[in-house]
């Protein structure tokens, strides 16, 4: 199987202390300054964070993008359901931005990236799905690609039916070669007995070496970071 290396990464969450780690942005409101204001106005907080991270990681916008979110934009979807219930016409902008690939769509327009883009939801196995997809692309000849995983709290109305999801997003450049500073992704099929579904915040903790292996119980897989060389 093709070896995977984490060549670079960026993260955003207001729920952690960066402790000097420049790759982690912790502001409550990410600026979204990499995106022109006429496009930025349509992005929620996580969308602004994701676009800034993708443009920082791939300034020439030449890499394929895999994007995963378990819940997507629950707020806009719920607002549309309220509108339907009230017999009101639907907002085209709200609809356009509620779809699962909305954030990477805006990123594509802003950056001029015309490469392949995929938006994934996997009921809590998002990280495993991203790694499987990345493996496919990299085995098929792609040398590097962008992988993004982001989620935010579900609307209060749904909170009793979904796991607590702190706002966080993480973007990685995965590649087949160990660039300077890269870390190797080691996969094991014996996950730790931890029942919780992986969230973006877990991936950030893992990249910052604040937790052990990243285990996905649904996929029966576990990932560790090893020195690159």
């Amino acid at each position: 199987m093709t070896e995977l290396f984490v060549q670079e990464w960026r993260g955003w969450t207001p729920h952690r202390d960066a402790a000097g780690e420049a790759r982690l942005e912790t502001s409550a409101k990410p600026a979204g300054t990499a995106i022109p204001s006429m496009l930025r106005r349509r992005l929620n907080l996580i969308g602004r964070a994701v676009c800034d991270m993708l443009i920082a990681l791939d300034p020439v916008a030449e890499l394929d993008v895999l994007h995963a979110s378990r819940h997507g934009d629950g707020e806009r979807t719920l607002e549309m359901l309220y509108a339907i219930d009230a017999g009101e016409p639907l907002s085209p902008a709200r609809f356009g931005l509620s779809v699962h690939n909305a954030i990477i769509g805006v990123y594509s327009i802003a950056s001029g990236n015309r490469r392949s883009q995929q938006a994934v939801a996997a009921s809590g196995a998002e990280w495993a799905a991203l790694m499987a997809e990345a493996q496919g692309y990299l085995s098929d000849g792609t040398e590097r690609l962008l992988v993004v995983f982001g989620d935010q709290p579900v609307p209060a109305r749904f909170a009793d039916f979904a796991p607590h999801t702190p706002a966080a997003a993480v973007a990685l450049v995965l590649g087949t070669t160990p660039t300077p500073g890269a870390r190797r992704l080691a996969l094991s099929t014996a996950p730790e007995a931890d029942g919780a579904a992986l969230q973006p915040l877990d991936v950030i903790d893992w990249l910052m070496q604040r937790r052990g292996p990243l285990s996905c119980p649904l996929a029966g897989r576990s990932w560790t970071l090893a020195p690159g060389a």
Partner: peptide, 17 residues
């Protein structure tokens, strides 16, 4: 102003409402 086609639809809706 630099509006786009989604804005046109949204504006049409606002005029209606």
């Amino acid at each position: 102003l630099g509006l786009d086609s989604i804005d046109a639809l949204e504006l049409g809706l606002a005029l209606q409402k």
